[in-house]
C-alpha cells in the first residue's frame, strides 16, 4: 500500500544540560572529584548528558587531552555531548569523537569573564570569601529575555511528579520527597519542600529559591547544587531563601 504520510520532520527544541567547567588538568584529581560528586547523588548524574567547558583551562594555558577526559566521563557514567572553549587540538579530538563543538551559545559570557580573576586565585568555588552584595549588581548582566509569566501550582506535588516552569514557579502546597520542580526563574514554595528544587536551570545565576519549610532532597541554582546531606541543620525545616554567590549556594533564614 502506498503511504503518503511524511517519514520525518525537523523541529526546533530547547534542552538543558549540565556544564562541567575544569579548572585543573590533573586527570586523576578530576576523576576523583567526579566520583565524589556522583556518590552524593548517583541517580541524579546517571546517564546525564554533559558539556565540557575548557575555557578556564585554556586561559591558564593548561593543556588537556580531550579524548582522555571523554574516556573518564564515560567511565563514571556521563554522556559528553559537547565541548566549549576548546583549543584547536581539543576541537579536533572532539570532532573525531563525533562530539559537537560550542553546542551552547553563551548567554552571560561577560559575567564569566569578569569573574575569571577571582577564580584564578581561588579555584574552589565553595571556599570563596563572601563578596559584598553590591558587587553583584556591578556585574554587567545582559538584559534578560522578556520574562515568561509565573506558573502557579495549588495542588500538592507528589513523589515522581515533575513540574517545569519557563519563568518563575510559585507553589502553594507541599512538594513531596521524590518530586522534582524546575524553573528557569525563581522558585517559591509556600509550604514544605521535601523534593528537589532546581531554579535558574538555563543558567540564570540570579535565580533564587524561597521556601517556607526546607526539607529538600536537593536544591540547585543554575547548576550549582547541594543535597540534603550538605544542608545545614540550623536551616532545616525553617523558612529560607537560597541564592548563588560566587558559585556557592547561600541558604539564609528568612526571619
Amino acid at each position: 500500500m502506498l503511504n503518503t504520510s511524511p517519514v520525518l520532520e525537523f523541529k526546533s527544541s530547547t534542552f538543558f544540560a549540565p556544564i562541567l567547567i575544569l579548572f585543573n588538568n590533573d586527570m586523576a584529581a578530576i576523576e576523583e572529584a567526579l566520583q565524589d560528586k556522583i556518590s552524593l547523588a548517583p541517580e541524579f548524574f546517571k546517564d546525564s548528558p554533559l558539556i565540557v567547558d575548557l575555557r578556564e583551562l585554556n586561559k591558564q594555558s593548561q593543556d588537556l587531552d580531550f579524548t582522555q577526559i571523554v574516556q573518564i566521563l564515560r567511565r563514571v557514567g556521563f554522556f559528553p555531548i559537547g565541548i566549549r572553549g576548546g583549543n584547536e587540538q581539543q576541537n579536533k579530538q572532539a570532532r573525531a569523537l563525533s562530539i559537537p563543538l560550542d553546542t551552547v551559545r553563551e548567554q552571560n559570557s561577560s559575567i564569566n569573564i569578569g569573574e575569571t580573576q577571582k577564580q584564578e586565585t581561588t579555584p574552589q568555588p565553595s571556599v570563596q570569601p563572601e563578596v559584598p552584595i553590591a558587587q553583584e549588581s556591578t556585574n554587567p548582566i545582559p538584559a534578560p529575555p522578556a520574562p515568561a509569566a509565573a506558573t502557579l501550582v495549588t495542588q500538592p506535588i507528589r513523589s515522581g511528579q515533575r513540574i517545569y516552569a519557563s519563568g518563575d514557579l510559585i507553589i502553594l502546597s507541599q512538594v513531596s520527597a521524590g518530586a522534582e520542580i524546575m524553573a528557569e526563574g525563581n522558585i517559591h514554595v509556600y509550604n514544605t519542600l521535601r523534593g528537589r528544587a532546581l531554579a535558574g536551570v538555563h543558567g540564570n545565576t540570579a535565580a533564587r529559591i524561597f521556601c517556607f519549610d526546607l526539607q529538600a532532597e536537593l536544591i540547585s541554582i543554575a547548576g550549582d547544587y547541594k543535597t540534603s546531606e550538605d544542608l545545614n541543620k540550623q536551616t532545616y525545616a525553617n523558612p529560607v531563601q537560597i541564592y548563588l554567590q560566587n558559585h556557592a549556594l547561600i541558604i539564609k533564614e528568612i526571619a
Binding site: 500538592p156 513523589s159 515522581g160 513531596s176
Partner: peptide
C-alpha cells in the same frame, strides 16, 4: 512514599 507516588498518578 509509594502512596504519595500513586496520588501523583
Amino acid at each position: 512514599r509509594d502512596s504519595d507516588r500513586m496520588l501523583g498518578i
